[in-house]
Amino acid sequence: MTIALLPNRRHLLASALVSGAASFARSSCATARSILGLRLQPIPAGSFLMGSPETESGHRPDESPRTRVSLTRPFWLSQFEVTQGLWRTVMESTILYQAKLMLADDALYMLGGTERTIRDRLGFDKDIDPERAIGDIRDDLPMYWVNWVEAAEFCRRLNDHSAPPKGYVYRLPTEAEWEYACRAGTTGATYIGDLQILSERDAPALDAIAWYAGNSSVGFTGKGWPTDDWAGKQYPGGMAGPRAVGGKAPNRWGLYDMLGNVNEWCHDWYGALPGGSVSNPTGPASGNARVIRGGSWFNPAHSARAADRDWSKPGRRFWGLGFRVALAPRLDG
């Protein structure tokens, strides 16, 4: 549910947020937490401008209208994307099994302007060895081939494992929480500033913070996928794939790979940004696609921006789609 702020009450909320931020450092919410080896970074309450200006390089129409968002309670967000090792611990399953599920999935998804199965989009036969659909199996690599339902189930199991603080739950972050945490108090296209996109897969500033289609082949070793036919690539050719989490610089709140490596599921159904000012938005009440954020190792440069928005049916699994976990206020419904 999205709650509009009355104009004559906005200054009261702003004062409360300033006061809350001042006390955040003194509260238990300012301390990192850990569960099953998953480290969660503290994120203070605050407000930010969600979306991007039309003048931003890579801007897309659904990033407008820009919306003033206030998040009135602090939360935590996992420092890294969920890894294959943690997935195996919590779900008692492997990435190889998830690849089998993808190959068996006969559902049709809108991919590249055409409705087709994921395996058809990627050129896989239904009965191939699932080993051909994965890169390396390593505990420090991000988990992928995970759909939204499975990511939500992962979070549910964390709640079963360890009772969260009162009023909080382990869950997927809302889209607003995700963008707020990604920006970490900054206002540019990325958390290190604005982005100059020279071509579809060429934005040199991303080298410091993100694995994206332009650089994901640099220094890559092990099983991967060829990139020789990727046009406009910053570093032409080579094999590429997901990289060990934490390999690039974090943002100022200690979060790694918020941009690039693998895309991340969010809680919300996909819909238009509301505009104006809102408090603790959670997206539309219903829909047919869930929000995806962050870009990945095979996505173009415009995807590796704090405001970039993507979406997919909840059942979709993909080779660059994973998630991270929030410990955040319980949501209604």
Rank of each mutant, 00 (worst) to 15 (best):
Arg317Glu: 06
Glu92Asp: 14
Pro314Cys: 02
Leu5Phe: 12
Pro314Trp: 01
Leu321Pro: 07
Ile35Asp: 04
Phe124Ile: 09
Asn215Leu: 08
Ile43Ala: 02
Leu6Ser: 14
Pro300Gly: 13
Asn215Pro: 01
Ala32Tyr: 01
Gly188Met: 07
Gly51Pro: 03
Gly37Phe: 00
Ala249Asn: 11
Val90Gly: 09
Pro42Trp: 01
Val149Phe: 10
Thr72Tyr: 01
Gly85Leu: 06
Pro53Lys: 09
Ile128Ser: 09
Leu96Lys: 14
Ile118Arg: 08
Leu206Ile: 07
Met91Ile: 05
Gly294Gln: 11
Pro314Lys: 05
Gln234Asn: 03
Ile292Trp: 05
Lys126Ile: 11
Asp207Arg: 14
Arg121Cys: 08
Ala231Phe: 01
Glu153Gln: 13
Leu6Trp: 00
Val218Arg: 14
Ser64Tyr: 00
Ala272His: 13
Ala301Met: 02
Met1Leu: 01
Asp194His: 09
Glu131Lys: 11
Phe24Glu: 05
Leu12Phe: 06
Gly193Thr: 04
Arg317Pro: 01
Thr174Ala: 10
Ser279Trp: 01
Pro281Gly: 09
Arg330Thr: 14
Leu327Phe: 08
Gly246Pro: 10
Ala25Phe: 08
Leu122Ser: 02
Pro7Thr: 05
Asp268Phe: 03
Arg132Met: 11
Glu81Ile: 01
Ala99Gln: 10
Ser70Phe: 15
Asn299Leu: 07
Gly37His: 02
Ala244Pro: 15
Ile95Gly: 13
Asn147Lys: 06
Trp148Tyr: 04
Ile292Ser: 07
Arg10Lys: 11
Ala208Leu: 10
His161Glu: 10
Arg183Met: 13
Val90Trp: 03
Asp257Cys: 04
Gly58Ala: 11
Leu141Tyr: 14
Val291Met: 07
Trp265Thr: 09
His267Cys: 01
Ile128Pro: 00
Val149Asn: 13
Arg157Gly: 07
Glu54Thr: 12
Ser199Gly: 10
Ala304Gly: 06
Gly294Ala: 03
Asp308Gly: 00
Leu6Lys: 12
Gln98Asn: 15
Asn159Arg: 07
Ala307Thr: 09
Gly295Glu: 03
Glu92Cys: 06
Ala16Asp: 12
Asn251Glu: 11
Trp148Ser: 06
Asp62Trp: 05
His267Thr: 00
Arg119Met: 05
Ser216Arg: 04
Pro314Asn: 04
Leu40Phe: 13
Thr89Val: 14
Asp120Ile: 02
Ser27Met: 03
Trp225Arg: 13
Ser15Met: 11
Thr187Leu: 03
Ala181Ile: 06
Pro226Lys: 01
Leu172Ser: 10
Arg317Gly: 08
Asp229Phe: 10
Met110Gln: 14
Pro314Thr: 05
Tyr109Ala: 07
Pro314Val: 02
Arg201Asp: 12
Ala181Trp: 05
Gly46Lys: 06
Asp194Val: 10
Leu111Lys: 02
Gly167Tyr: 08
